[in-house]
Design a binder for these strands. Structure first.
Length: 596
RNA sequence: GGCGGUAUAGCUCAGGGGUUAGAGCACUCGGCUCAUAACCGAGGUGUCCCUGGUUCGAAUCCAGGUACCGCCA
């Protein structure tokens, strides 16, 4: 039975291009889920966007002498284009700097405030002496009062490990301009998280689908919740929607609070652009909907504690939600969190030049081998290391050798001896066994994907390709082409049918090559579709670019289907390029040249 | 520092109180030749991080330690 599926991948921060660790964490896993559920016939909404507020962007802007908006514009475009090239089939990949997002964030803020879930408090804050902007603790350094280490940060001394307040530091100074910070009282709004603990605990306990570590980690936090600041002394952010703050530019909503609301605001934006402004309700105010949130492990707390608290507090809502009479907004169902990817044994770090940007890889390699690697060898359940040697090996020995070669030999035989999909005679036991195995793959692979066991799902699909290779080896149709042409025809019909179905089973993982194969096999229409840029109006005569796609027009479906005899078969074109092992050394040299 | 997670073959990972610990890839040998020198079959591969405890029996459970990762920050 179809039910609406919301796929909510984490929002990449628009401070710079995103690296392949991000693609492994929120990218590829989310797209596999979205493509599978669409093929399975469910209405899917995958929404995300670039996260564009906050101090790191203002710091980058000051450094370059341009506005925060200019930084955000630049990297939002770069990130969105990289994700497009990776084949991320978003329905709406937008930005947090749109008027729509601002309105939805302000509605959530106001509603939570009205209901008493947001409180005010005065705290001592640190400000830059030169710009007057707020200085986050980690941007302040000084001498550690405990061990005397001169490079201690305002949150912690890395030498002695002690937790610090910026006011503890001896000779504190800003890491940005070197000036001593100014400390003064400042009033802020806080989300009253402890109020939600009583409802969060039973809800988390009931989430048996979550991975054990996500659940225990979250439960552990529930008992120690503190109110969390949701405003900052900064000019760059969503304005606080209260009369007393009108016209003031010194306080804004804290970036984390506005970013998580993006899942909702992007859904509202998608609905408005689709021509049915109410369409988002089918995903958010519908108990039959299933919500997947996809992120790396450093983001878990936002998706299991903080965002659910905000959703619980908002309930059926204020202006956007519609209020009484509407169902409450749905809470997350699946938390698909990944571990971390390292790069040739080193942590990704923009500041130290350790990294590999998604766009750089896609300049030199095709998207499917990268997607294959990040799914097959990615950090699904523990930290893993990206190495070029492993990338070449996975591509050549698994992707090309198993799947690419199966397609190549099957299509080549059929093309040479028949020029079309040959007719089948009475199938033998072996024919039935191999077809039944591939047919059963729909349920096995599909169940594994739906449960977010993506690595196991891919392994299962690839094992079926290996089984069809084995079938061909045993049946030897190339021998029979002359001696027993009807039998050779049947074998190739069976093999082609299996390949045509494997194309669907692999499409969530390898959408580009499955699409190419779809056309090689002479099918009409698009198998799953690819994202493209479109313009969404902002209502003020302006607009902004979004990543979207017309996936509903795709013809693929997650079910065994026969292949019509007589369909013309062209000469095979390789689905994947085999990589020269020399690229390992080339890439390592490139890293050494650009890194530290 | 506190809390949590992870540690199993060269690599990526499964498993899990009970005979000789598993899969794929890598590797070796054999076969095949339709296929991007691809494919098929067979085979070896391990102090299951360390120490101690519980137990008839621990890689599995418990405690401590070490390393790595995340959160608190």
């Amino acid at each position: 039975m179809p039910h609406p599926i919301l796929i909510a991948p984490a929002w990449p921060y628009a401070q710079g291009p995103r690296h392949i660790g991000h693609a492994a964490g929120f990218g590829v896993p989310a797209d596999i889920l979205a493509r599978y559920h669409r093929l399975a016939g469910h209405p899917v909404l995958m929404v995300s966007g670039t996260d564009e507020h906050g101090t790191p962007i203002t710091v980058a802007a000051d450094r370059e002498g341009i506005t925060p908006k200019a930084i955000a514009d630049r990297y939002s475009r770069v990130i969105a284009d990289d994700l497009r090239r990776l084949g991320m089939s978003y329905d709406c990949f937008t930005r947090t700097t749109t008027p729509n997002h601002q309105q939805v964030v302000q509605d959530v803020f106001r509603t939570l405030l009205d209901r008493g879930f947001i409180t005010r408090r005065t705290t001592l804050g640190a400000f830059s002496a030169s710009t007057g902007q707020t200085l986050p603790d980690r941007y302040i350094e000084g001498i550690c009062p405990h061990c005397g280490h001169p490079g201690a940060r305002g949150d912690q001394c890395e030498t002695c490990g002690r937790q610090l307040d910026p006011t503890d530091l001896i000779e504190p100074r800003s890491r940005i301009d070197g000036q001593p910070p100014v400390f003064r009282d400042t009033e802020h709004f806080f989300l009253d998280l402890p109020r939600f603990a009583g409802r969060l605990r039973p809800w988390i306990e009931a989430q048996t689908r979550w991975r054990a570590n996500v659940r225990s980690f979250s439960l552990n936090l529930v008992d120690e919740l503190q109110p969390r600041a949701i405003t900052r002394d900064i000019e760059w952010g969503v304005p606080i929607p209260l009369p007393e703050f009108e016209g003031r530019s010194d306080k804004r909503i804290y970036v984390w609070f506005d970013a998580v609301i993006g899942y909702l605001s992007a859904s509202v934006e998608w609905a408005a652009a689709s021509g049915d402004p109410e369409a988002w309700r089918g995903f958010w105010q519908n108990p039959d909907a299933r919500h997947y949130y996809v992120m790396a492990k450093d983001n878990i707390v936002f998706h299991t504690i903080i965002w659910p608290s905000m959703l619980l507090g908002y309930g059926s809502g204020g202006r956007v939600g519609g209020g009484a009479g509407r169902p409450p907004l749905e809470l997350p169902d699946d938390i698909v969190s990944s571990e971390f990817l390292t790069m040739e044994s080193r942590k990704f770090s923009s500041s130290r030049g350790v990294g590999l940007y998604v766009g750089d890889v896609l300049d030199r390699y095709d998207p499917d081998p990268l997607r294959y690697y990040l799914c097959a060898a990615g950090p699904e359940s523990q930290d893993t290391d990206f190495t070029w040697a492993e990338f070449v090996r996975r591509t050549n020995d698994e992707l090309v050798a198993t799947w690419g070669n199966l397609v190549s030999r099957t299509v080549s035989l059929a093309h040479r001896h028949f020029g079309q999909v040959p007719p089948r005679g009475e199938p033998t036991a072996a024919d039935r066994v191999v077809e039944a195995a591939v047919a059963a793959g729909y349920e096995r692979v599909g169940d594994l994907i739906a449960a977010a066991h993506l690595k196991a799902a891919l392994t299962e699909a690839m094992a079926l390709a290996a089984q069809v290779n084995q079938y061909l080896g045993e049946q030897e149709p190339w021998r029979l082409a002359a001696s027993d042409r009807p039998r050779a025809a049947t074998i190739l019909n069976v093999a082609l049918t299996c390949v045509d179905n494997l194309k669907v089973l692999l499409a969530p993982f390898l959408p580009f090559s499955s699409e190419a194969l779809h056309q090689q096999l002479g099918h009409a229409g698009v198998l799953t579709g690819q994202p493209r840029f479109a313009e969404h109006a902002d209502g003020d005569g302006r607009g902004h670019a979004v990543l979207t796609g017309d996936y509903a027009a795709a013809v693929g479906s997650w079910a065994w289907h026969p292949l019509a005899a007589g369909q013309p078969i062209a000469a095979p074109r390789p689905l994947f390029r085999k990589l020269d092992p020399a690229v390992v050394d080339q890439e390592l040299e490139r890293m050494a040249a650009t890194g530290s």
